[in-house]
Computed example of a mutant assay.
Amino acid sequence: MAVTNRGVDESGWDVEPGDEIEPVVQAVGHLLKVCREAAGMRAVDLGESMGYGEDMIRKMERGQRIPRPEFLDRADTVLNAQGHLRAFMEDMRKARYPKKVRRLADMEARAVEQLYYNNHNIHGLLQTREYAKALFEMTQPPLSPEVIEREVAARTDRASIFERDDPAPALSFVQEQVTLERPLGGKAVMRRQLEHLLVVGQLRNVSIQVMPTDRDEHAGTQGLIEVLKFDDGTAIGRSDGAFNGRPTSNPRDLRILELRYGTIRAQALPPRESLIFIEKALGRL
């Protein structure tokens, strides 16, 4: 098994049985085998040229292992596959997400407006890789290095939403003050996280606000809020303290969440003052 200095297998991850992505992974594995045989190479030969064992190559060909996009890119060159393997790089990138994250990433990609209130950690879309890794390493019971790497990759890949245009989604974040001051992962990790917030906060379609701890009125006492709105007029949202914490698309429920979120935004610092607050928090680290 190929292992990097991060202690995880870089060839990809096992396919979850029954996952809807399984047929696609199997098709890509079959294509890999066809390309290998057409190139006159044995599985062991391809493994040696790619830096993997024969067993790992055969697992990918059987659709039991999700190949990394980088693997397909290099294999396309080695096997002279003329772009046929590269054509599936994006599919395999998405396949690497855990199933629940894959659904979330799909909704985020379709949403034209997104509203988020977070009270414990920096929101996932705003997290740096180091900060996300620190959070997953704190999970109890402990996660394996492979699971941590998969979760971190899925979370940080979702940040590509900030590069989306035509049109760019409207993104609104309200963060509790404590999430900017608790140095999860250490001061160096938190320093880079705050620097990242200052960069993202300058984007024209992004609003980041800070909810000060000293507020004597707070509409967010029932926990985090997430609302995603789509261009067909539908939406989906959830909150820890409403509707049993489950996602809802009921118009009445959504109005309640939007009312709470609107009040939270009004109680928080305005975006420009919030960026100044983040700069000061960075200076204190």
Results as ranks from 00 to 15, higher is better:
residue 94 K to H: 08
residue 34 V to D: 07
residue 52 Y to C: 07
residue 232 D to F: 01
residue 16 E to G: 02
residue 48 E to H: 13
residue 240 D to P: 03
residue 127 Q to G: 02
residue 231 D to M: 06
residue 90 E to T: 05
residue 106 D to M: 05
residue 34 V to Y: 01
residue 224 L to M: 12
residue 116 Y to Q: 05
residue 272 R to Q: 03
residue 96 R to P: 00
residue 40 G to E: 07
residue 108 E to N: 05
residue 186 G to E: 03
residue 246 R to G: 01
residue 75 A to L: 07
residue 189 V to R: 08
residue 279 E to W: 07
residue 64 Q to A: 10
residue 209 Q to G: 08
residue 161 I to W: 03
residue 205 N to V: 08
residue 41 M to S: 10
residue 125 L to C: 09
residue 216 D to K: 06
residue 86 R to D: 06
residue 47 G to V: 09
residue 27 A to R: 14
residue 161 I to A: 11
residue 276 I to N: 12
residue 269 L to P: 00
residue 85 L to W: 10
residue 56 M to E: 13
residue 187 K to P: 04
residue 150 R to G: 07
residue 204 R to I: 11
residue 100 K to N: 13
residue 274 S to P: 01
residue 131 Y to Q: 04
residue 150 R to C: 03
residue 230 F to W: 04
residue 98 P to Y: 12
residue 277 F to S: 00
residue 19 D to N: 07
residue 113 E to W: 14
residue 216 D to E: 08
residue 124 G to Y: 00
residue 97 Y to W: 13
residue 52 Y to K: 08
residue 97 Y to M: 05
residue 78 V to M: 04
residue 274 S to A: 02
residue 262 G to K: 10
residue 179 T to S: 14
residue 160 S to C: 10
residue 230 F to K: 04
residue 240 D to K: 11
residue 44 V to Y: 02
residue 190 M to W: 00
residue 170 A to V: 11
residue 197 L to T: 01
residue 37 E to W: 01
residue 68 R to L: 09
residue 244 N to C: 12
residue 28 V to E: 02
residue 250 N to S: 10
residue 9 D to W: 04
residue 131 Y to I: 13
residue 66 I to H: 10
residue 137 E to V: 11
residue 180 L to V: 03
residue 232 D to Y: 02
residue 128 T to F: 05
residue 200 V to C: 04
residue 103 R to G: 14
residue 253 D to M: 02
residue 265 R to N: 06
residue 252 R to D: 09
residue 178 V to G: 08
residue 168 A to F: 11
residue 133 K to S: 02
residue 150 R to W: 09
residue 45 D to Y: 02
residue 102 R to E: 11
residue 249 S to C: 07
residue 160 S to D: 15
residue 269 L to S: 01
residue 3 V to H: 09
residue 275 L to H: 07
residue 200 V to Y: 01
residue 24 V to A: 08
residue 64 Q to S: 11
residue 71 F to Y: 10
residue 115 L to C: 09
residue 121 N to D: 10
residue 283 G to R: 15
residue 201 G to R: 04
residue 176 E to V: 04
residue 210 V to T: 06
residue 214 D to V: 14
residue 228 L to H: 01
residue 279 E to I: 04
residue 109 A to C: 07
residue 14 D to F: 12
residue 262 G to E: 13
residue 139 T to H: 09
residue 32 L to H: 00
residue 122 I to W: 00
residue 162 F to E: 03
residue 112 V to R: 10
residue 80 N to P: 00
residue 187 K to V: 14
residue 273 E to W: 00
residue 70 E to R: 13
residue 89 M to Q: 15
residue 162 F to A: 05
residue 157 D to K: 03
